[in-house]
């Protein structure tokens, strides 16, 4: 069974190689009568037998009409499916255990009557279809979800598109291999933040201090001549409480380091998960921090870009990388 599957996969790889965008064509489209198509053929045979036995030409005509309709359906189904052009949109990295969204964009010609019609079922190879997408009321992109199971770069399974348009007699389908660079970050493991001021020192310390700034209103102070009039608390003045000047402050964070080491191989995944959680937590607080993975260090910084860099490093981490 596994062998067969391997052969099939190799066949698919050759026939439909990995790409970002696909215009479906004779190479990528498979077409075969659907279950209903077979039922329909049996029905035609039944009508034929009945018509012959009763020597009834109208029955035979109906039968032949239905058969020729079947034939036409083959072409209509194929041509319709071959109009589909689909590409993978922007993907985002996800944590292990979360569902990564794959946005698929169906490119349609400007004239909607010329484009593909009907329902398209989307899903992954060897899985049941996840959703139905109606090409006639096309709303790009169509998102199918994919559960990230392992840390690191993700190899997407093939995406199966199938359509029964126009009459369900034929199933057109294709298995598309989209090129992706989705990374699965380690699954965050809740823990307390352990920031060290020095690399690899284990002492936690206070990470915040207040400093005079301009962001937030902090307190009132006696007005001293020379201070800008705009800072005067006019409301207090109007109440006759005297001239006060508003003081503003902003919080400034102190940078520290997150350390992977010491760590043994068997707790590596947990440790990475904890670091992952801490990176998220610190970014949420807007703090400066650096990440030390032994052979790979990321200098202290803050912000979403920094977070992404750290998470990517965690996702790609392996001992041998050193």
């Amino acid at each position: 069974m596994g062998k067969l599957r391997q052969i099939y996969n190799r066949f698919l790889d050759k026939r439909i190689p990995v790409a970002r965008q696909f215009q479906l064509n004779h190479k990528s489209i498979f077409i075969f009568p659907s279950k209903f198509g077979w039922l329909y053929l049996v029905l035609c045979l039944g009508i034929f037998i009945l018509g012959t036995n009763y020597q009834n030409n109208l029955m035979l005509l109906l039968c032949f009409f239905l058969v020729s309709l079947f034939l036409l359906n083959l072409f209509v189904a194929y041509l319709n499916f071959a109009k589909i052009s689909v590409q993978l949109g922007k993907t985002h990295n996800e944590f292990v255990g979360e569902r990564a969204q794959l946005p698929l964009w169906f490119n349609l010609p400007k004239n909607s009557t010329q484009g593909p019609h009907g329902l398209v079922e989307l899903g992954f190879l060897r899985q049941s279809a996840q959703l139905q997408h109606d090409l006639d009321s096309n709303q790009n992109p169509v998102k199918i979800a994919f559960v990230c199971e392992e840390r690191g770069p993700i190899k997407l399974p093939r995406v199966t598109l199938s359509s029964f348009y126009p009459m369900g007699l034929f199933r057109c389908w294709t298995h598309l291999a989209f090129e992706s660079n989705i990374l699965a970050y380690p699954k965050p493991v809740p823990c307390s933040v352990q920031l060290t001021s020095q690399q690899q020192s284990l002492e936690p310390e206070s990470t915040q201090s207040q400093e005079s700034g301009f962001d937030d209103f902090d307190s009132l102070k006696n007005y001293r001549p020379g201070e800008p009039l705009y800072h005067v608390a006019w409301k207090q003045f109007a109440k006759g409480q005297g001239m006060y000047s508003k003081q503003f402050s902003s919080s400034v964070s102190v940078s520290g380091w997150l350390n992977l080491i010491p760590c043994s191989a068997d707790v590596l995944e947990v440790k990475l998960g904890q670091l992952c959680h801490q990176v998220n937590e610190l970014t949420r607080r807007g703090q400066h921090f650096g990440l030390d993975l032994g052979h790979h260090k990321i200098e202290p910084d803050s912000g979403p870009l920094h977070q992404q860099r750290c998470l990517e490093a965690l996702a790609r981490f392996s001992w041998s990388a050193s």
């Binding site: 590409q87 949109g89 922007k90 993907t91 964009w105 490119n107 400007k110 992109p141």
Partner: peptide, 24 residues
């Protein structure tokens, strides 16, 4: 003209589809 609208739409759609543009 319709041609121009389609051109603008093709431009913005491309920015939404393509990986090269982080902010569509």
């Amino acid at each position: 003209s319709d041609n121009i609208l389609n051109y603008i739409l093709r431009l913005v759609t491309f920015s939404r589809e393509s990986e090269q543009f982080p902010n569509p």
